[in-house]
Write a protein that binds this DNA or RNA. Sequence first.
DNA 1: CGAGGCATTGACAACCGTCAATTAAGGTGG
DNA 2: CCACCTTAATTGACGGTTGTCAATGCCTCG
Lengths: 289, 289
Amino acid sequence: MAPRQQSTSRRLDAGASPGFRPRDRAAAAAVGPLVAKVARFMRLTKAEVGALADLFDGEAMLDAHEAVTHEGHAPAMVLVTQGVICRLRVGPDGRRQILDLLLPGDLCDQHLVLAAASDHAVIALATARVAYLSKRRFLRMLCEQPRLSAALRWIALQDDAMLRERIVALGRRDAAQRVAYLLCELLWRFEALGLAHDGIVEETITQSTVADALGLSPVHVSRIVSRFRAQGVADLRRTRLQVLDLGRLQAIAWLTPGYLHYEGPSAAALGLIERWQDDAGPIAVRSAP
Amino acid sequence: MAPRQQSTSRRLDAGASPGFRPRDRAAAAAVGPLVAKVARFMRLTKAEVGALADLFDGEAMLDAHEAVTHEGHAPAMVLVTQGVICRLRVGPDGRRQILDLLLPGDLCDQHLVLAAASDHAVIALATARVAYLSKRRFLRMLCEQPRLSAALRWIALQDDAMLRERIVALGRRDAAQRVAYLLCELLWRFEALGLAHDGIVEETITQSTVADALGLSPVHVSRIVSRFRAQGVADLRRTRLQVLDLGRLQAIAWLTPGYLHYEGPSAAALGLIERWQDDAGPIAVRSAP
DNA sequence: CGAGGCATTGACAACCGTCAATTAAGGTGG
DNA sequence: CCACCTTAATTGACGGTTGTCAATGCCTCG
């Protein structure tokens, strides 16, 4: 399809024809991480899982630093299936600002389906695998699958909440607090994916990545990390992140508990979606205690 | 309805019964700014305008610094109709970080429809007027009105883009650049609403507001603004913002041109939504030049 | 006319970026 | 298995930007 013709990545499963079995299996495998993510807060029917798999439109392996989308070009809708990719902006002075990190199961640029051009680049931190989703079928699915549509809306809400937390961190927290906050977030997110063991994450997060995400210099991040290491709080060296004392790390970070919104949409809201036929019913979206 | 029982604001038009004429007129008037905003990029049918008006669920006047939503409480879905309100977070040390500013026609917390609690407060900068939208009817509308649903998705995209721009500003730009960027953004947004004349905006933006939005101290913002004034670039005092030399201000700000996405969704994407029945058609979401 | 919010100005210190030199680790090719 | 190269991390010195504190002035509203 048009949006990806400039990609230099090895495109896998390129010439599949609709209805061809291996492709279906690839689709099911590719959307697996997304299904798992949704399943954290919502039960999906087989039909709904199938509807997600139907969005599948090929996949690609990415080398380190390879771009999925370039700034100013057409946005691709991708789902991360392996590795870590990031959305980033590069300033006129060449300094990078990472907007967010996308882990397996994360959807990139859901809202940009409608846009002709992206205002940011999307780049793999290290080798990664992504599935492309068909924009046309995505838009159609949103109309035809109210529950999936709500699930994706909830995911958008989680993403927004992370962006907001980032803004607070960048605006009102000093370097140590920022680093602590990001390390907590990363640990939690990788833990939720089963990719962390004993506080250790061995994906491709480096100190420079942290610096680019937090608006700091790599030098200063190194100083902070050294201090955390000396204090027995956390360590980050060479793609290996180890959280030694999560309690202390959280205390340093001034974290908003639960800002990742893993708990899922309110039951009342889900009820609304499943039963919006009876408008006069006694259902109300209620306040939390 | 439940979410607003703790509000101390004067609730207007409270006891309206469905089908009652004056309420309909109030609804039409209240959603006017939103309709105008959508009309900037998409033609709406009368039925669609009616569907938006149907979301109306009362309105309220807010005093300066009065909250629409408190952090941790149930989020209200509101549409700003007059004045300026902001979403903000307050840190443990009492420092404020404004997440974004909402102008007439802006929708607050679209995605939080599904959430039981909000992670941020929503507060009026000065006297303001807001319309409450029914969450239940909103969710229903999203299912029944694909074009409106797309329009709201586009608005969400605009909001996201502003958050991303904020992140880049906070992470990688110095104080002067940040202030220049925010003043540009404000001028453009107020201009789009017809609320700016000759580069002058007289709404309730103060230097402290700017400081809270940009992660700076009011003192430093004052220094920057004084310099801008001396250079003949811009001025901001009391509640009067005047841009004297927009070109220079933009140059200082390192702005991403067009990040406000006023141009609207790509025609191709809109075509997709209106014609998603024929899946095999030759329609493609294409790249911008 | 007084009070309170907003803005200004100066002095000082802390935080953090930059520059530069160095070390460590991993990867590649001989 | 070792030499070499690249990337990541470390450490120290220095300086600029920005926050804090405090005092003052100004405008608006009551």
